[in-house]
Design a protein around this nucleic acid. Structure first.
Length: 490
RNA sequence: CGAGGUAUGGCGCAGUCCGGUUAGCGCACCUGCUUUGGGAGCAGGGGGCCGUAGGUUCGAAUCCUACUACCUCGACCA
């Protein structure tokens, strides 16, 4: 293994996978398209999970768990839904293995063929609605606000670590409501929760809006999304929230009796974010030295590298730092003293930079003599000596600063690479060199398809509060129905 | 599914054309000594069924055949 990562400018996707392997976030699994999330990567996921889960609970949701296996028949109940997932489902057909009679090792026992094949969930709408049918009778049973943290399987042809793997971890909220208004409000509310966490915790700026007909979730009436710009100016869908209308209620015959004693189908939403967010985190903040983590998410916020020759030296450093460590503990600052011997300080600097730790403190005899610590920030590479008595305050400031700086830098990058045009030639040029294009669209799927064919760009979202007055469609030059954002996407 | 490519210690590769000592190098790993403020140095050491199966040959990593896996591009998908 070579020392650094492939520079971003040289080969973006190599850079991306280099960071993942060298920062020890993940590794390839033995089955094509599968991924092992390693402890460091998983702890980032845990922090994210915690941030989301807290807010789900605050907005009245509860967690539950539904099975991995779905009867094949369920999937065909909602026509749009099957169509969306049919081509990427793992199917369980047998329940037993046996030793091959010809001695060639283990084989599938043909006698164990299942009567009804079982689908490994690509998403859980169908199992969940089959259960909601049992649970819902009256308007008094509503709303149901359930979330589950789970794995799902989508058999993908082309995979990339974190962005698209055959199995991934996510969260899926599934809610049931008595009115359309309430359900739409729920879907919108959860999109706001996504935006808040992704922007404030991950420091990744996002656009919010609606998906076009061809980009929306199979089975939804409307799909709302948060969309982010990656470091190569491509777009990444970072989360979606769907208003499902009565589609699943009708497919699974879920009715409730209203206050005025009428029978009506239930209104539904579903919403999800996945480990794909870690991909976004890497591609938005990472640089040629490795990962850069926003302090609110970093498993380790401050790493301390002691410069020492003997065990005595190390002891002295620990004593010197004991007060500041106390303050870190009291204030829940996540810190780590890297006292591994036999590794040079320089090696450790590089390693922790690769892993994206926001703040590094170096302490050696020199600092003890001047009663100070040497502080380096990962985002800007600034380094300076700080009196130890001001150390804790300085670290607190830096934590805020770095969090804000990462967000602002990413936002500036996105804004600098977002262009407004109504000229198709210019549109093609921008899309080719990378970036978001804001322009008019006549609202026709046909137009969208043509643009996609010619440029590979898709409508990433139709922003809320849409003002398309006097706007012309970028392609047909007819009067535009929406103002939309086009880009090439992952 | 279509086209092309690759397969050699954990990783990255050389060797294959033109068969012939004990299959080699870098990184990583282990041991010891000296080191430690931006990826330390020296010395020693461990690790290989050369993708699988057959064939040609006195002799195969190297030539032939089949198979398998993976990669890139296209198609498909989000």
């Amino acid at each position: 293994m070579s020392k650094g990562v492939t520079p971003k400018s040289q080969d973006y996707s190599r850079w991306y996978t280099d960071i993942i392997t060298k920062a020890e976030l993940a590794d390839y699994g033995p089955v094509k398209g599968t991924m092992v999330i390693k402890p460091y990567g998983y702890s980032i996921w845990e922090s994210l999970k915690e941030a989301f889960d807290k807010r789900f609970k605050e907005t009245g949701h509860v967690n539950a768990y539904f099975p991995l296996f779905i009867p094949k028949s369920f999937l065909s109940k909602e026509a749009q839904h099957v169509e969306g997932f049919a081509k990427e489902c793992a199917v369980v057909t047998h329940s037993r293995l046996k030793n091959s009679e010809s001695g060639g090792g283990i084989i599938v026992d043909p006698d164990s063929k299942l009567d009804e094949e079982i689908i490994v969930r690509p998403t859980s709408e169908t199992v969940i609605w089959s259960m909601y049918k049992k649970w819902i009778n009256s308007y008094r049973d509503l709303p149901i606000l359930i979330n589950q943290w789970a794995n799902v399987v989508r058999w993908e042809m082309r995979t990339r670590l974190f962005l698209r793997t055959s199995e991934f971890l996510w969260q899926e909220g599934h809610t049931a409501h008595s009115t359309e208004t309430e359900a739409i409000a729920e879907a919108r509310k959860m999109l706001e929760v996504y935006k808040e966490v992704v922007e404030n915790v991950m420091a990744v700026p996002v656009l919010t809006g609606t998906k076009s007909e061809s980009e929306k979730f199979a089975g939804a009436i409307d799909t709302y999304c948060i969309e982010a710009m990656m470091g190569d100016k491509k777009a990444l869908q970072a989360g979606t929230s769907h208003y499902l209308g009565q589609n699943f209620a009708k497919a699974f015959d879920v009715k409730f009796q209203s206050e005025d004693n009428k029978e009506e189908f239930v209104y539904a939403t579903s919403w999800g974010v996945s480990t794909r967010l870690i991909g976004a985190l890497i591609m938005v903040h990472g640089d040629d030295k490795g990962l850069r983590l926003p302090p609110k998410l970093a498993p380790i916020q401050v790493v301390i590298i002691p410069i020492f020759k003997s065990d005595d030296d190390l002891e002295k450093i620990k004593v010197f730092l004991s007060n500041i460590f106390e303050e870190f503990k009291i204030n829940n600052i996540r810190f780590h003293l890297d006292s591994r011997k036999k590794l040079s300080p320089g090696f450790k600097f590089n390693e922790w930079e690769m892993k994206g730790v926001p703040i590094r403190i170096e302490v050696g005899q020199r600092d003890i003599n001047s009663n100070s610590i040497f502080v380096a920030r990962r985002d800007t590479n600034e380094k300076k000596s700080v009196k130890i008595n001001d150390g804790f305050k300085k670290i607190q400031e830096l934590i805020n600063d770095i969090q804000n700086n990462l967000f602002n830098t990413a936002k500036r990058f996105r804004d600098d690479n977002t262009f407004v045009t109504n000229n198709y030639k210019e549109f093609k040029k921008i899309v080719n060199t990378g970036g978001f294009v804001e322009c008019g669209w006549d609202g026709k799927t046909e137009t969208e398809d043509k643009i996609k064919k010619e440029t590979k760009a898709t409508i990433r979202c139709i922003p809320f509060n849409n003002d398309a007055e006097n706007l012309k469609c970028i392609y047909t030059q007819e009067s535009a129905k929406y103002r939309v954002v086009f880009a090439k996407a992952y």
